[in-house]
């Protein structure tokens, strides 16, 4: 069918970005889920960040996260636990939030230009998982930890060690994100953008 084509960002892109941002916000409203192995309850919001990149693609994924960051900045309680406002950026964990934007971008780039081109099922699944780990963990921490260090005066090394507490939970989220992305791709095929 010949839907009207526009160059660049279409109305549909704007809607996809906004609806995914809405999913990320809604995931913050879900009570944290406790997973058997880890004693720490995990919130699903960062799972949404990985999914934004993996499902929508790099540009739209990053824009979806950017929209959530913007809503946080203007004072809406869009983060897990009803947090929001400029204080989030002033605080020691602001870097993790800002890191969502490049994080979703990197996940999206890896899925679009690498994982999506693989044909064997297990190789593709592994690549999507690697993309979620790289974008949703490595990139996010790469902004989060230095920000924490500067903000708190902790040396970078100690800040990094402290940040490791969250790695097990985030790894589980990356696995879940890869499984969800796989499930979504099976029932709704969409070009990555």
């Amino acid at each position: 069918m010949n839907r009207r084509q526009e160059r660049g960002i279409t109305t549909r892109d704007v809607v996809l970005v906004a609806l995914f941002a809405a999913i990320i916000v809604a995931l913050g409203l879900v009570p944290p889920i406790t997973v058997g192995i880890v004693p720490v309850p995990i919130t699903l919001q960062t799972l949404g960040v990985m999914l934004a990149g993996a499902v929508l693609g790099p540009v739209r994924g990053a824009l979806a996260c950017g929209l959530v960051v913007l809503l946080t900045a203007v004072g809406l309680p869009v983060l897990a636990g009803g947090r929001g406002g400029l204080g989030v950026f002033a605080g020691p964990t602001g870097g993790y939030l800002v890191g969502w934007i490049p994080g979703a971008l990197v996940t999206g780039l890896m899925v679009k230009y690498w994982a999506a081109k693989l044909t064997r099922g297990w190789a593709k699944a592994g690549a999507v998982l690697a993309a979620c780990v790289a974008g949703g963990i490595v990139v996010v921490y790469a902004l989060g930890i230095p920000w924490l260090s500067v903000s708190s005066g902790l040396p970078l090394r100690e800040a990094a060690l402290g940040g490791m507490v969250f790695v097990p939970g985030d790894l589980i989220k990356a696995v879940a994100a890869a499984l969800v992305a796989h499930g979504v791709a099976r029932s709704y095929s969409m070009e990555l953008k």
Partner: peptide, 19 residues
């Protein structure tokens, strides 16, 4: 989370076309 999110995202993506 996986069983919840797959239908949630698929439904939302489909709604996006209508919106």
């Amino acid at each position: 989370p996986v069983a919840l999110l797959v239908p949630l995202i698929v439904r939302t993506l489909k709604a996006a076309d209508d919106v």
